[in-house]
């Protein structure tokens, strides 16, 4: 039993970051309909910036904030520079453009920071507390706390603020929001900037566990995408739930089924969920009728 609890607890802590990645992914998708395959690379960019600022002597907390800002900037630049002309084009054009951005970001990272793997210390101690026979470290606690705070703030912002309501309206009909004095273009920019900030945050949070390598972003994009789809594309809460579900599932599968096929088990679960419930776990009704 303690094995089971340990697998679940460790999964929740790891999944919180996937959830943050998925939330950014979802937010960008919700407003623009674009699947951003550069999302993970923006996260890595944020992590590398965190690394540099920390290296210049700033406290880790400040460095992480710099990473968040860098992620937000990258997201905004990408929206203005690359995606804006593509909104009226077929879905695949936007997606492939983000792939192009991902290639560019990876090579920029490699040019600036080199390909040698780098590392960052975690925000809190990784010496675990022992609760019964289950280990849980302050670092994991911080990770979970940050995720809860940020996602609560985000959900509040999407539900209650004018911009958030605009985003949701925009997802439904970008023509109509104009009538209410909201510029869809500004909404797109805001969405991508926030998504980039979330990515940068996730990057800064996950690097103490995995370290920094230039093309690590691809696997982060895939994780974020999977979390967002499982939770229901467009739903922030869904993405967090989806991310945690994937990590827990993977852990349980590696303990009880096979470590090598843990990912396959997680994917199978996602496909089954999609077949039963087209909109994902927490996707809204809008998602079932949205034409893409």
């Amino acid at each position: 039993m303690s094995t089971f609890i340990q697998a679940v607890v460790a999964g929740i802590a790891a999944g919180a970051v996937y959830g943050l990645l998925g939330a950014g992914f979802s937010l960008a998708y919700k407003t623009t309909g674009i699947i951003n395959f550069a999302h993970g690379d923006i996260a890595m960019l944020g992590a590398y910036v965190t690394f540099s600022v920390f290296g210049w002597g700033a406290p880790l907390f400040v460095a992480a904030l710099a990473g968040v800002v860098a992620g937000g900037l990258a997201g905004a630049v990408m929206e203005r520079g690359v995606l804006r002309p593509l909104y009226k084009r077929p879905l695949v054009a936007g997606i492939l453009a983000t792939v192009g951005v991902s290639v560019v970001l990876q090579s920029v990272i490699q040019l600036v920071w080199g390909s040698l793997p780098l590392t960052l210390p975690s925000l809190a101690s990784s010496t675990p507390w022992r609760i019964g026979s289950v280990a849980f470290s302050p670092a994991q606690a911080v990770l979970l706390a940050v995720t809860i705070i940020v996602s609560t703030a985000l959900i509040f912002a999407v539900d209650r603020t004018r911009v958030g309501r605009g985003m949701r309206a925009c997802a439904q009909d970008s023509g109509v929001v104009v009538l209410f004095g909201i510029s869809p273009e500004r909404l797109y920019l805001t969405a991508f900037a926030i998504a980039g900030m979330l990515a940068g945050l996730a990057g800064a949070l996950i690097t103490p566990t995995i370290g920094l390598t230039p093309s690590r972003g691809v696997s982060l994009s895939v994780l974020g995408f999977a979390a967002a789809v499982l939770g229901g594309l467009g739903s922030v809460t869904g993405a967090i739930v989806g991310g945690i579900a994937i990590a827990v599932l993977r852990n349980l599968a590696s303990v009880y089924v096979s470590a090598g096929y843990a990912d396959a088990v997680a994917y199978l679960a996602i496909v089954l969920v999609l077949l039963v419930r087209v909109r994902g776990l927490l996707g809204d009704d809008l998602e079932t009728v949205r034409s893409v």
Binding site: L91, I270, L274, L275, V292
Partner: peptide, 22 residues
Amino acid sequence: ARVKSHYFILISLALAETIQLV
């Protein structure tokens, strides 16, 4: 054939990753 395009990308991704794992 049962899901829409964004979700299809994930389904094809799932297949691709599973084949790689095998």
